[in-house]
Design a protein around this nucleic acid. Structure first.
Lengths: 254, 254
DNA sequence: ACCTGAACACCGTTCAAGT
DNA sequence: ACCTGAACACCGTTCAAGT
């Protein structure tokens, strides 16, 4: 499909010029469609009708390209959360300015929850992003700004800086829309949830088998891969938010 | 140091024979010392005084080798937690056998907490393990058995199977000793936490700068990289355990 | 200023050949 | 049965050469 553009090689007549922007966008598209493993310099070059070596005129190398891809996702997240709480950061200042102990009738939980869910929607469009994010040695400015907003929300909600700090660690990646799905019980059971298979595993993993059996029984329509990632994400987020609210409430005035 | 062993090439006289066990152990050692990136078939072969292709007689390929490495870590975790709660899984059965609604005076929180911290100690010896774990398509049996034990502890503590299921998702990787450290505020600030630098960043990330400033001020000895990973891990774990206990308590008898 | 071709030093893996 | 050497199809990256 890029043939018509790539036909004219060096003249630059009808050809869209290469740019950092175009390189990054092609890489994101490939990663979205086929995973990060498919992102190689040669492949991205091919996608743009150009030799791999040409990319080096616009990005310093593979690592810089991955950095740019993360920046793109971070920008999308910032754009998604911007309309949700543009008053929150100001709220933090006025609440503290009012005299220290005051925690306004500001619904930090709902604000933070909405922010996390909005970020999650962006992450779901770029499932490679969490994995790549972890490998970055230097953090995207927009990611830092995202967390700055989280701090602003917590502070506006009456959290001390110390409790805010602990809260960032406790929430971890959940506050930016994903959690490491190390364990999906569906995978544990394999795709075979037949009675015989469950019985065979019962000696090795009796508690899991019983749990799976009961949950599957209560919701028969979803015996296979029945974990609703979205609602499980929300459950975990709410458990954390509840626990943090209790700690915040027990520190007011101290 | 392997020279003396590797000198005799084909006779097998004084030479330790290659085995799946030795291959795996060499790979784990290299990963512990230099990271997973250093684990290549050629490198592991070299480590064992053998050509890379010889490894294929004992492991199916690179992916199978990574599987074996994860299995090793999982086995270490199982060994570490085995002495902590060998009565717990039985406890689950008797509590349920007693008549359904009964939740014994069984300290599930302390049991689960100790389990997570013991697993964490193993993970800290193999910092590459979490990352590799995520890339596995099929889960190690010992990992599944670990989670089976977690289910046993929760059931013994009075959790319904449904709440147990949600709890697994909520705890995520924390219950097996690590949490995705996406965000370390120390990294955000960079290694330069000088007054001038903080001032320059204050416009971009005002809330973070203020938080960092205050936390650093309260604990001046640790201005740089002052996040205590261990206690932050424990804080997050406790927030979750508290929230889950509240939910468990509110469902007894229902 | 931007793009290219050839080359270098790496990968994982296959396969026929050795012993 | 186990190990090897050469080869294949990939990587990221450098560099001199083209226009």
């Amino acid at each position: 499909m890029t043939d018509t553009v790539a036909r004219d090689t060096a003249k630059g007549a009808g050809r869209t010029p290469l740019s950092r922007e175009r390189v990054m966008r092609a890489a994101v598209d490939v990663a979205d469609a086929e995973g990060v493993a498919a992102v190689s310099m040669r492949r991205i070059g091919q996608e743009l009708g150009v030799e791999a070596m040409s990319l080096y005129n616009h990005v310093a190398g593979k690592e810089a390209l991955l950095d740019a891809m993360v920046d793109q996702v971070a920008a999308e997240i910032m754009a998604a959360v911007a309309p949700l709480d543009d008053h929150a950061s100001n709220g933090a200042r006025s609440a503290r300015g009012a005299g220290g102990a005051g925690h306004a009738a500001y619904d930090w939980r709902s604000t933070l929850r909405a922010r996390a869910l909005a970020a999650r929607e962006v992450m779901l469009r770029h499932r490679w992003a969490p994995g790549v994010l972890e490998t970055r040695t230097t953090m995207s400015l927009d990611i830092v700004r995202y967390y700055d907003g989280v701090v602003g929300i917590l502070r506006a909600g009456g959290f001390s800086n110390d409790l805010t700090h602990h809260s960032l660690h406790a929430l971890g990646s959940r506050v930016i829309g994903f959690s490491q799905e190390l364990f999906d019980p569906g995978d544990a059971a394999g795709s075979d949830t037949s009675e015989e298979m469950l019985a065979a595993m019962a000696t090795q993993i009796p508690h899991l088998v019983e749990m799976l059996g009961e949950v599957a029984h209560d919701d028969p329509g979803s015996t296979l891969g029945w974990c609703d990632d979205q609602s499980e994400f929300e459950f975990g987020l709410d458990v954390l938010l509840d626990g943090l609210e209790r700690r915040r409430a027990s520190t007011v005035g101290s």
